[in-house]
Design a protein around this nucleic acid. Structure first.
Lengths: 198, 198
DNA sequence: CAAATTCCGGATCATTCATTCCATAAATCA
DNA sequence: TGATTTATGGAATGAATGATCCGGAATTTG
């Protein structure tokens, strides 16, 4: 079912991925339209707005792309073939691997690209906040599963450990940006999980 | 030794404190000159530049003010009247108290105000990065002191725990911004310190 | 007093920002 | 073919950005 009209001269999907990397690296506000236009192959303003609507709309798409790919942690946490502890460990390792990879910007897009914003961009900050909440809730669910299983002690510490893990996870975004090595962060992650052993 | 010339019509010290709160709340780039000028009592551009030099210079002053007051954690960590564990606990509690206080912006200025920047402001990001490093190094020193004391096990885990604690600490900035309660974060902090008990 | 010094109000600067508009180009549909 | 639809190139929009400049006001010094 070929679309009518003049065909687009660039690949929209890969453009979104490139834009995602820009927003990830520089944040929403520091990424300017001219940054975007030149990175996405030197397209014109008209092409940009026709394809994406606005800078905010593109950011929303990029954040969704991020959460579905590089920032995807929920699937691991919900994987019932893994014990809760294993799932948490895989999740942490996977996150550290991506956050410290040299093939993409350092740190976590959901943390870095939308925490601090101008009042005009409060909606952007909220998008990022919702993205962060998704992971926090998934951690809580994973721990609840472990408690229900009998795998983890039912001593009421799960809520606290959710925040402990999630705060650590978010702190990783800062550490990665500050140049802390992957190996050092992995050792920390394993040490953190030792709280579950007692 | 009274200075010659027309006296300044505003209190420079309190202006720096107000600017600090602005940068803390909105970050360096989202805080505009007109934000600053109106918040600091509606002063003119001439007065602003005469008093502070530039936006960056004022930010540097504000960050130093922050690190010397609200963000001050080093003194606690170096307090030899406390055990290493006590010092770490007081440090975490103090940080959580400030980061979740309603009397000042949520979270940590060193984390939130200067992680993500435009290329033009790379020097601002570096100022913030250096400020973050100060605390990380102080945590490492505190743990080293505990090991040297015999208070903590000399099993080589101190480096990892430095990062575990520091990542958690930096993650608190995000959690505070996301509205997580002080009490929940305090419980997490205590749970995290339980790693030292074994 | 006058000279020197510092500060202030307000206009102004060149840039950059995100966005819109218009004429034209390239495709499909009838 | 001609009508319709969509995309492109490039100019233009108004608002906001950080910073500078000038004339005058307020103060100390001599």
């Amino acid at each position: 079912m070929a679309r009518t009209g003049r065909p687009r001269e660039f690949d929209r999907e890969s453009a979104v991925r490139q834009a995602m990397n820009l927003f990830w690296a520089k944040g929403f506000e520091s990424t300017s339209l001219s940054d975007l236009k030149s990175t996405l192959g030197g397209l014109s303003s008209a092409s940009f707005y026709a394809a994406f609507g606005s800078k905010k709309a593109l950011y929303e798409e990029c954040l969704a792309e991020y959460m579905g790919t590089c920032g995807e942690l929920v699937a691991t946490l919900r994987d019932e073939s893994l014990s809760a502890r294993e799932a948490l460990r895989v999740m942490l390792w996977r996150s550290i691997e991506i956050q410290t990879s040299r093939d993409s910007p350092l740190g976590c897009m959901a943390v870095l690209s939308g925490i601090v914003c101008d009042d005009d961009n409060a909606d952007v900050a909220e998008l990022a906040r919702n993205a962060r909440k998704v992971n926090r809730d998934a951690i809580a669910d994973c721990l609840a599963r472990g408690v229900a299983n009998g795998e983890l002690a039912d001593d009421g510490s799960a809520e606290a450990f959710t925040l402990t893990l999630d705060s650590f996870l978010k702190g990783l975004a800062v550490q990665s940006r500050d140049g802390i090595s992957r190996e050092a962060l992995l050792r920390s992650a394993d040490q953190l999980l030792s709280i579950l052993d007692r």
